[in-house]
Design a binder for these strands. Structure first.
Lengths: 191, 191
DNA sequence: AAGCTTATAGAACGTTCGTTCGATTGCTCG
DNA sequence: CGAGCAATCGAACGAACGTTCTATAAGCTT
């Protein structure tokens, strides 16, 4: 007899295929329940368990937990890795990194002026164009018609751009400092 | 007058909020179209453009392109830069980072032993458990029952783990070196 | 200005949705 | 065996769905 976990796995597979959840009728058909009310009961159980929600128009929608994958701890646990991996859904990364897609832009890092912040040449940074910048944030500013990624800093002489690398000097804007956006994340691919 | 790109942005934000797409009626209300047929026409245009599909039960579903974020060039182009403009390269973060979902696991970096590789404490790394490790790769190995992230290296004395930080010594395995997986990417969130 | 094209509105349609409720099934335990 | 219970079924319901069609409004062309 299948458990709710099994059903959840099937739903996750369905989501991986279609990037959407089925209707209750289709859900029933998918997991082998013949009546819609049974499917509704299942959906309610999964809602209770925190895997599903409903959208404003009462459709099923996954929650964060629906995508959650075991983030393995650094210290190995006694047991071997839980094998219930129904498959990692990359979307978790997407929604983790990007809060407002329409205001988000990607940029590729040039140079090593932010190595202290862990930003290396070729890294992709996630830039939120709408978020207001605060002191200490990593920002994308426009200097001499070029994008530059630096810390936003302030001292008695005013606001300036501080590189995350002692080999580079701070940049003090002539007039107004034009900030393109705030860096909210970064990612990188090896190989 | 809003373009289809504007509408797409609104849909992307809706998806970021609910992890599902709205019905045609809700879509119309969302973007300010008063009739369902207009919303249907919009949906068809976005389908034609490759951003949307339909599930087996005729619901709207996003495609791969739907998740792509624009990548802007480091050098600012002459024109002011709209956040969402066709013609820029798009990149879907998740599928870029995760090639084989079912064999991929996330890990959180502890310590600073790989700073040279741009891996800082708290970063998430993407680990492919199935990929064979080659020399020079960043690997997750199991040493003293703990996960450790290091370069895989080899010299005349044999295979060893090389930290990306001169403050740490190389690790030479007693017997067999147990490799958990290969690091294929990493990501990090600021703030 | 008139005529044409395109986009949107609005209404009608049969279908499918999610919900509800009583009937039925299958299992447990005395 | 048979009563009790929980899960599932199956049918019914109004609401909402996506589709289709025609009418209206807005833009262009000439």
């Amino acid at each position: 007899m299948p458990t709710d976990q099994d059903y959840l796995s099937q739903l996750q597979d369905y989501y991986a295929d279609h990037r959407a959840l089925p209707s209750l009728a289709s859900l029933g058909q998918l997991v082998g329940l013949r009546s819609k009310s049974s499917a509704a009961a299942l959906a309610n159980r999964l809602k209770l368990a925190g895997y599903l929600t409903t959208t404003p128009d009462r459709r099923l929608a996954p929650t964060e937990a629906f995508f959650a994958r075991p983030v393995v701890d650094t210290v190995r646990a006694g047991l071997p890795q839980p094998a219930n991996d129904a498959g990692f859904d990359g979307l978790a990364i997407d929604s983790y990194l990007v809060a407002r897609p329409s205001r988000t832009v990607l940029l590729v890092v040039k140079g090593d002026s932010m190595v202290e912040a862990g930003l290396m040449e070729g890294d992709h940074i996630i830039v939120d164009r709408a978020q207001p910048a605060a002191m200490g944030d990593i920002v994308v500013a426009i200097v001499d018609n070029e994008f530059t990624v630096k810390y936003l800093a302030k001292d008695k002489r005013g606001i300036f751009l501080k590189p995350g690398n002692p080999a580079y000097p701070p940049i003090r804007p002539q007039g107004e400092l034009e900030i393109y956006g705030v860096v909210t994340g970064s990612f990188r691919k090896y190989r």
